[in-house]
Nucleic acid binder design. Sequence first.
DNA 1: ACGCCGTACCGTACAGTGTACGATCCAACC
DNA 2: GGTTGGATCGTACACTGTACGGTACGGCGT
Lengths: 254, 254
Amino acid sequence: MAARGSGDPARLVGLLWAASGSGAAPGRTGLSTARVVDVAVTLADEEGLAAVTMRRVADALGVGAMSLYTYVPGRAELVELMLDRVAAQVYDGGDLPRDVREAAGWRAGVLRVVDANWAHHLRHPWTIDVPPARPVLGPGVTSKYELELAPLDGIGLSDLEIEHVLSSVLGLVGHAARWTIGVERVRAETALTELEWWETVGPALGAAMGGRSFPLAERVGSAVGEAVQAADDPELSMRYGVERLLDGVAARLR
Amino acid sequence: MAARGSGDPARLVGLLWAASGSGAAPGRTGLSTARVVDVAVTLADEEGLAAVTMRRVADALGVGAMSLYTYVPGRAELVELMLDRVAAQVYDGGDLPRDVREAAGWRAGVLRVVDANWAHHLRHPWTIDVPPARPVLGPGVTSKYELELAPLDGIGLSDLEIEHVLSSVLGLVGHAARWTIGVERVRAETALTELEWWETVGPALGAAMGGRSFPLAERVGSAVGEAVQAADDPELSMRYGVERLLDGVAARLR
DNA sequence: ACGCCGTACCGTACAGTGTACGATCCAACC
DNA sequence: GGTTGGATCGTACACTGTACGGTACGGCGT
């Protein structure tokens, strides 16, 4: 009579650390929590989070949908397990922020964090669809956090400030990724490039606005349009924002 | 034979500006695009974006579900109309950023933008569930943009830089709001306060980790925990990040 | 070798979703 | 009075997460 499958945080922690939990060891079809999560991640990478339905994951594993519930409490928990799984791989084939910091300074270390997270989101676009809530307390997320704090440790910030800076940097990256991926998606589903879209919408907009004018918005909008050949370039904004943020942090260190 | 209802960007622009479009005028049941959008916003405010289904909106209006398609091309477009509608109200009962800037400087003007957007997201939590993509080119969003550019205009930044700064600031606010609202939601649905959650999860975590240690994460995590009585405080991080970002921008002006 | 039992497995069912299609009905114009 | 064009909407389809209850199998005690 363990708590109703879904909704027991302690059970999830067990599964995350794969230490215990009813689904840690393979059952008679060779299934295991790890295999379920791996297949779900692959599916999400290829077709998006919406394609990760219990039925499709089960199909890919050659079992019935309800069999998954032996290894995973429910879909929500499956998604958390997926997040922890991919978080573990963020720094896999590349320098650790700590090493970059030692070679090139704390700022370079933070920029390594930015690049790694940017690449991470683009590699697993579905990660931006999961609304952040309580932290996922698994080994992947935790060790990622540990690695990312390193460049900011011992440079003269309080522990609270360290957290604020990291959280702000990741916020900027996450927001830009959300935006970029969102644009990519509508482009894919409307089959319209940015230019084609503007050519359709621009005239309609002019007609619809009927005389109302927005001088600042128009000036800035067209400056941006000329610079990046699109309505916006989230990555560019994000990198500018990160640099200014780090300027501000650097000024604090004196 | 107008293009298939959904998927025609020009039609949407028309509806946004309420200038033309088949649904601009009320039909024989007194329905209009504006009424559909208003009801949808109310529903979303009260029960979240997931409650905004065509059937429920139609019920609230006393018509059949399919009648909505006369006034709105589809659910996706309805959501964009909702976003534009609420964007128009962001600065309704409060100072405009331009006026704040004139009274107290550009920095105060930007902070007014921060406060207004923060309040906006908390008032309409469903806004964080809409992934940003191509800009919503309606009167609400456009005039909001126009107002928010004002504090940054003419202080020595290029047009491109102005856009980067505003976009970064809004990114920080949006990220913090997403986070705060996410936490609020799990709290509501699990009926567990932060403290209760930690008391359940903490021991399980210690047991599951089985000796692995994360010195930095633990040190910073507990410093944060003591300071804010929770695993994190997104608003605090966001405000710190904004201040440092603006420090960085200020340093550029010289 | 045999029987039993816990649990892995899964078929079915339910209350929902967005919207395509085609039928119906009504207001206004000739 | 007749006709037409558009507003209205009933039905249908393919799909979702998961509760419930039944089946069948691996490993154990004897």
